[in-house]
Amino acid sequence: MLNHIWAFLMIVGLLAGFGTALHRTYVGETVIKEIDGKQTETVVKYETFREKLKAFSDSGNRLTSAAFNAVSISYTDASGKTKTGAIGMCLDLIGIMALWLGMVKIAEKSGMLLLLARALRPLFRFLFPTVPIEHPASGAMLMTFAANMMGLDNAATPLAIKAMKELQTLNGDKTTASNAICLFVSLNLASMVIMPATIIGYRISNGSDRPMEFMVPMYIAACFGLATAFILCRILEKFTPDTPIVPLEEALRASEENK
């Protein structure tokens, strides 16, 4: 899917660039200039062959430099502002990510993530009635949610896969998602981040004065998303039959064998 989108952006972009260049050369170009503090539009027309040739190659240069600027460390745009390119952003991000993930590693080793997971236990009985709390699946799911809350996308994925494997031991039909699995995945599809470290990092590296400003509205939007996922799951799971539930002893044995 992304393959198609990227190809579309590139091919249509380059074709349109060619078209725009032709349009500029033969019809003329509208240039916005600031004269005495006022923005005025003037139409520049290219009359002679040499002017046309120059205008056409100029358009090509603009496309090239737009692409090169976007991936540079930093560049100056048409209005004279200094902007950060792709590599510059990564350089800024290295420090911020290192700082944050360093902190999280301490939290992980000191057992703070586990503590967070324990605090969420009562909520879990309500969300996943088919998953017994003594089965390792609930612990694994708690860890996944905790990692998501800390904004650890990369750490959350391995934890989530572990949780999925544990949930699968309780699932009687191995090729169909059980209600518990559906809800677990759906909740992961909504965001539950408490500390969106990467977004804050990017905002800082792009010169934000108020890097945390967006967080309260973001929480509200995320809560609505989570509620939608939960409510839809509870409604839609009635339309297709749930998979049979494997008895707890058997599931525990299967989960032992997985390790």
């Binding site: 990227w6 952006l9 590139m10 249509v12 972009g13 380059l14 074709l15 349109a16 660039g17 060619f18 078209g19 725009t20 603009r62 496309l63 737009a66 692409a67 600027n69 976007a70 991936v71 390119g85 792709a86 590599i87 952003m89 990564c90």
Partner: peptide
């Protein structure tokens, strides 16, 4: 980042 930023830059600069 490089792959997407360059594509978007071209898509924008071309007027598309």
């Amino acid at each position: 980042l490089v792959v997407i930023l360059s594509a978007i830059a071209i898509f924008r600069e071309s007027g598309a």
